[in-house]
């Protein structure tokens, strides 16, 4: 693989990331059930790119996002931020991580404290992460509002006085306030009305250009991810099942699950979705299957799929899928 030449500009990387919930022993020594939310994820993000992560509910994408910003700690594996281990960063200075990587929440209204003015919400990161106060702080507040196209008088309003789109812009301003290199966007437009989604997406694109930001863009909406991403990873049941650079994943999906996702998305002006068999269900997260998690739903599943987990080599430039019987078996460069 050609990864070596690009190692220098990788800003965020995860290795064998695992997160389980529950587990341990009960009072009487019985085994408590363990939920496997994330089951070994390797992703890398390069400076200045947008990595899109697609998946359906329950695939672990939000758990992954929370681990990337330090709101949650991995059970196994590690996360490195431009070469330094995240655990070291947090141990050394718990603010250092928040100055470099920030988060935009899915529900813009509930991510703002209903009893605080927007001014107080935005002042938080400026004061505690950037050490601003007094006149500098006010100046910076005005700059931030300007950056997200909100009028400065909105600073003295409460969250309930905002529409979803405006509140999400406040959420983005809060992330920007820390002057991070990377922003993790967890379904940033899913809770918004369609006519407002485009406003927020365009704003995100402008900010990325203006401040040289790197995005990790998490969504269940394939069309949004396709429109914003430089590289796309598809998640299924706690693992990345396919990853590719650019449009390759949409043009020539390798994994049958990616194919199914693409075929299930309704497109305005087109009719006739292909529909899989109704009995298909997600595997039980308390007892993940030994083989490929998609095998029970997969039209191409064979004996080897249920016996062993297929492996994949995800690089920065290639296109690969964790599948024994991919759809377009072309070897990646």
């Amino acid at each position: 693989m050609s990864d070596a030449s690009h190692v220098s500009d990788v800003v965020l990387q995860t290795r064998d990331l695992v997160r389980t919930f529950g587990g341990g022993r009960t009072l009487f020594g019985g085994q408590k059930p363990t939920v496997y939310a994330v089951r070994g994820i390797d992703v890398a993000v390069r400076k200045g790119e947008t990595l899109g992560i697609v998946g359906e509910s329950g695939c672990g994408k939000s758990t992954l996002a929370r681990m990337l910003v330090g709101l949650d700690r991995p059970t196994e594996g590690n996360i490195t931020l431009t070469g330094s281990d995240m655990n070291d960063l947090i141990a050394h200075d718990r603010h250092a991580l928040s100055r470099r990587i920030q988060y935009v929440f899915q529900d813009p209204i509930s991510s703002l404290n209903p009893r605080k003015l927007i001014r107080e919400t935005l002042a938080g990161p400026l004061r505690y992460l950037r050490g601003l106060s007094g006149e500098d702080l006010n100046k910076r507040l005005a700059e931030l509002m300007d950056a997200v196209n909100l009028r400065p008088e909105f600073l003295d309003r409460y969250p309930h006085e905002f529409s979803g789109g405006q509140a999400q812009r406040v959420g983005i301003a809060r992330a920007l306030a820390a002057e991070p290199e990377i922003i993790v966007l967890d379904e940033p437009v899913s809770a918004l009305d369609v006519s407002v989604q485009a406003q927020v997406l365009n704003l995100l694109a402008d900010l990325k250009k203006k401040f040289g930001l790197t995005y990790v863009f998490i969504s269940h909406d394939l069309s949004v991810v396709e429109a914003v991403s430089d590289r796309v990873a598809v998640m299924y049941f706690g693992r990345v099942v396919e990853q590719a650079k650019g449009r390759a994943l949409f043009d020539k999906p390798l994994h049958p699950y990616t194919r199914l996702l693409l075929d299930s998305a309704p497109v305005p002006g087109k009719r006739g979705l292909t529909v899989e068999d109704a009995s298909a269900e997600l595997p039980d997260p308390l007892a993940p299957p030994p083989g490929c998690a998609f095998a029970p739903r997969c039209p191409r599943a064979q004996d080897d799929c249920v016996a062993k987990v297929p492996d994949a080599q995800y690089g920065l430039e290639n296109h690969d899928a964790a599948c024994f019987h991919p759809l377009n078996p072309v070897t990646s460069a």
Binding site: L71, S98, G124, P125, R174
Partner: peptide
């Protein structure tokens, strides 16, 4: 918003 406050330092 509590998570957001944590990330605000």
């Amino acid at each position: 918003f509590v998570d957001a406050a944590k990330l605000s330092g």
